[in-house]
Simulated assay, not measured.
Amino acid sequence: MSSDQRPNLAVVAHAAGDLRVEARPEPRPAPDEAVLAIAYGGVCGSDLHYWLHGAAGASVLKRPMVLGHEIVGTVLEAAADGSGPATGTRVAVHPATPGGTGARWPADRPNLSPGVTYLGSAQQDPHTEGAFARRVALPSRMLRPLPDGLELRTAAIVEPAAVAWHAVRRGGDVAGKRVLVIGAGPIGGLIVAVLRRAGAAEIVAVDLQASALARARALGATRTIPATDAAAVAAVDADVTFESSGSLRGLSSAIGATTRGGRLVMVGLLPAGEQPVLIATALQRELELVGSFRFNGEIDEVIAALADGSLDAAAVVTHEYRVEDALEGFGVARDAAVSGKVLLRF
């Protein structure tokens, strides 16, 4: 299978505050699964939540779980049933498996299916193991071959960039418009990059951290505002606003800063349960409040845009750590004052 004799190290969340780098058994693929050598994995906010809190929203750890869904690598062993890319192919991964019965969902939006599973998620029981490991077996249908010339490290942001691409699509036609992005962390920063590609005339980014605002400017923001300057944020009067901070204060600011008849795309995940929201203001302004959750086929468009250079999002990546140093990498990733997207190198 592989000439790599190193232990199959994986990043495993055992419980709140208990993150370990430990050797896992070699993968034993099903007929429709390929074995991948993972090259890079991006640390997502959900990974941090499983480490820090033992849960990501309503998805609670019940047993140890390998983390990771933002991954790229090379096929070591193609699927035995002949599906998917050949051995040696460099690939990105679409980590979702749609499905479920009961609740209805639009057939063309599988991200909304009630039983969807995601790599590195405790939403279902048993949990869906992630792919932060040197070698993993994954269904061949998840694999997206990378074009020649697109480096694995560059492609490591494909999954979060697809989240941003989906969000911008939910925002409608942004060409020539004034757009506001509240929360300039990795997802917000990638939204800025996608907006630049989509032809937004003005892109205003808001964040608490000066470092995040600097990255937003590098990614294409035409203006940045510290989140503490409430008056300046309220005065933006944006045609389209993206709320990617995942905070009530951010959502309130977004409602107040969106022009009458404008659209607000809610990307950041708020805590579960009832939340106080400025609905009266949204109603009086006839705002369109739109949700955005994960992505569907946008991953293929992101790969093409990264390959042809029309999407330049390199500035979102700020740190890289070996898998052996994953605990240090997670510690840096949790500090928004110093880091954007943190990559693990396997």
Rank of each mutant, 00 (worst) to 15 (best):
T258V: 05
V323P: 00
E26Y: 04
G291E: 13
A326H: 02
V11A: 12
W165Y: 15
A216V: 02
I157H: 05
V75A: 05
F293Y: 15
K62D: 14
G268Q: 03
L152C: 06
R223H: 13
I157F: 03
I191Q: 03
R285E: 10
R153S: 08
L143I: 08
T97F: 11
L150P: 02
R196D: 08
I203C: 06
A162S: 15
D335Q: 12
G82K: 10
R217E: 15
L19S: 11
R104E: 15
L48S: 06
R170A: 13
Q284H: 15
T74K: 04
D229W: 04
A58M: 08
P29W: 13
V181P: 03
Q5V: 13
S253K: 00
A156L: 01
F132W: 08
R178H: 07
P147V: 07
D125Q: 15
L146H: 10
S113N: 13
V158E: 09
L190V: 05
G54K: 02
V240W: 02
L180A: 12
A86K: 08
L61F: 08
D81G: 10
Y40H: 14
L269K: 11
R63D: 12
R217M: 13
I299E: 06
G297I: 06
L195R: 07
R144F: 02
A326N: 03
V168G: 02
D308G: 09
S292A: 15
A221R: 04
V75N: 01
G130R: 08
T74S: 09
D173T: 14
T74H: 01
S211D: 13
P160H: 12
E26P: 00
E328T: 15
I203R: 14
D18N: 14
G185L: 04
A333V: 09
G120I: 13
V12F: 11
L138M: 12
L213N: 09
E26N: 12
P110V: 09
V75E: 01
I71M: 01
G329D: 06
A184R: 08
L36Q: 12
G120A: 15
A314G: 14
V317G: 00
V43W: 03
T224W: 00
L195G: 08
A156S: 15
V316T: 13
G220E: 01
G246E: 05
E243P: 03
Q284P: 00
E33G: 11
L180G: 07
T259E: 11
L264M: 09
I225A: 02
G176L: 11
T222P: 07
V194M: 11
E320G: 12
A80S: 10
G183R: 07
G100V: 12
G268P: 07
V332Q: 02
G171I: 02
R260Q: 06
A10W: 02
Y50L: 09
S253W: 01
V192T: 15
G189R: 04
A315N: 07
V233I: 15
G340V: 02
R144D: 07
V158K: 09
E151N: 02
T97R: 11
G171C: 09
L61A: 09
L264D: 05
G329F: 06
L248D: 00
P85F: 08
A37W: 06
